[in-house]
Design a protein around this nucleic acid. Structure first.
Lengths: 338, 338
DNA sequence: CTGAAAGCGCTTACAG
DNA sequence: CTGAAAGCGCTTACAG
């Protein structure tokens, strides 16, 4: 590694002051075209780049935002969520000269957040998840630290957030089931402590109410998000005297268990029972029959959250509350016979 | 957000100089116990933490390391690899006051690396993957920038790296197949351009050679890592006049396709064909029959890579080359009938 | 449009 | 064991 050039070296080499070099790099308009040109030549020739730490110290900002790695044992998200959302965040932010700082939630997410903030490492935070009465959200809101949530905050509708319209998505899929003649819909997987599960439940119930169908608590299996829970719940439903004629599953991995139960029982899809689930994966595409899915674009979620956070950090006037990112309903054999 | 306290504020409050506060925080031994105690009291009372940017600038290091998000379209890794490895890296590093900076490989991994280095944002890098003749590795080696590879570098055995012993793992599983009486083993999934696939192929061939078995090129299906490729390849093998009696699959997701092909054909597992694969997942555990697997601990890989990088950054004398992290062979019904 | 100077908040030889 | 001073490499009022 050769010795790093400083802004003073560049100033000397181009025959101007450091202030001028700084202004050129900042693309200030108060610089003559000629000076700008000649300085940039030197800058490019030597490949000079300002040191981030010095710049950040002088500007009194970090130009970095923080993200806490979600604990996977909660099994709440599709496996690719984190990587894709992070990708979206990173792409959006790096275009604007921001860094993304990762931390594991150690011992809790809130501790990690406090650490990042107290050592002045970040200007803002993107939360990848939330629970009901989320401690991190409360802390960030009270301390007025800039953040954007991927998800929806029930307690405070003013929180900047980006989410899929989970209520709408569940409604859409239930509506589709209804249109294919199904009247006894079950819903399986995930726990009500997750906000997005609550929202989906609302969408599901909304359709039932609109169509004058009863809400049958036995059809609502929302205690756990494991594949095995999907298997066991479906088994129960299949044995029940009033077997449902359709089922909406909260995640593709849970649906693996659901499909196994149905296949073992010999019940026909979609004639006797229609199946649809959230989150596209190789399983949903290659399953026999192929599965009708709602796919969520995690990359977009991350990208949009980062854009929103940038607006907040730049004090741009933006609307409070939640922004929605589109979902996609893909209809396949598991709900429509051909 | 209240006004941040600086080291001078703390100095004033505790009646010492800023230098002394700095030394106390650094736990220098050249400080009297009393001074240390009284300063720490003030520090804790006010919750003072040094600002990272100022400290980094003064120390002339960034206390951050970089990681580039792998492009998932290569489908090279198990889906949880990135998140788990990152978790390991982050835990190991944050214990030592380091930050983890994430960047997407935009437009290429090498570009992202150069950007991070040229703006002096990081002290070192952890590479999450490599290909044969990896451009990033070449660049980092030539510029003598500290880095650790998760994986194995074929071209330069001196590169610091952390990996599973893929050769040994494949050998182990082939040995297990051999001991259960299998003599015609196939190997499916992944591409030879991946170093770890090459290593596994070596282990597989090593066992065959040791046991005096022929190496049949028709049994080696290493062109692609998709589930569908697994399905198609297995279909071919099943139709072949000399059908293999065992198959080793490079990933659990590829194995979904392999299992589908076998199940459709009605061939019996493990009596007629034994199946084993890399990477544990809900699929391998709940599949019927349950699958024998080699599981790799991605968290450990990340944790160990970070530890190694820290040693490099601290100029500790460490051995060049690759460190291995244990793998685990879990034997289930797909290779041993009960 | 440009420069000299002060400052961002730390650390660390140097001197005592 | 402790402090005053210089310095890390930038930015940005201020003055011209």
């Amino acid at each position: 590694m050769e010795k790093k050039l400083t802004i003073r070296d560049i100033a000397k080499l181009s025959g101007v002051s450091a202030s001028t070099v700084s202004r050129v790099l900042d693309d200030s308009d108060r610089i003559s075209a000629e000076t700008k040109k000649s300085v940039l030549e030197v800058v490019n020739q030597y490949g000079y780049k300002p040191q981030a730490a010095a710049r950040n110290l002088a500007r009194q900002k970090t130009s970095a935002i923080g993200i806490i790695i979600p604990q996977n044992d909660m099994n709440i998200y599709s496996s690719s969520f984190f990587q894709e959302a992070l990708h979206g965040v990173s792409n959006s932010l790096s275009q604007n000269g921001y860094d993304v700082l990762i931390s594991s939630g150690n011992p809790t997410e809130l501790d990690a957040i406090k650490r990042l903030i107290s050592t002045s490492r970040i200007d803002g935070i993107i939360l990848l998840r939330s629970v009901v009465n989320d401690a991190s959200i409360q802390y960030l809101t009270e301390s007025k630290f800039p953040f954007v949530l991927i998800g929806t905050c029930l307690e405070n509708p003013d929180v900047y957030s980006v989410d899929n319209d989970n209520q709408r998505a569940a409604y859409d899929i239930a509506y589709h089931m209804y249109m294919t003649g199904k009247r006894k819909m079950a819903i399986i997987g995930g726990t009500k402590s997750s906000v997005f599960i609550q929202k989906r439940l609302e969408g599901y119930e909304k359709l039932l109410v609109e169509k004058g169908l009863p809400i049958n608590q036995d059809y609502i299996k929302l205690e756990n998000a494991s594949e095995d829970y999907g298997y066991q719940s479906m088994l129960e439903l299949l044995k029940s005297p009033s077997r449902p004629d359709s089922v909406l599953v909260m995640d593709d991995s849970i649906c693996v268990g659901v499909m196994k139960a149905i296949n073992e029982s010999g019940v026909k899809i979609p004639e006797e029972i229609a199946v649809a689930c959230f989150n596209e994966s190789s399983f949903t595409k290659y399953s026999r029959p192929a599965l009708t899915t709602i796919s969520l674009n995690f990359y977009d979620l991350g990208y949009c959250a980062a854009k929103t956070l940038l607006s907040v950090l730049n004090n741009e006037p933006i609307q409070k509350g939640c922004r929605y990112v589109d979902h996609l309903l893909t209809i396949r054999e598991s709900t429509v016979s051909n």
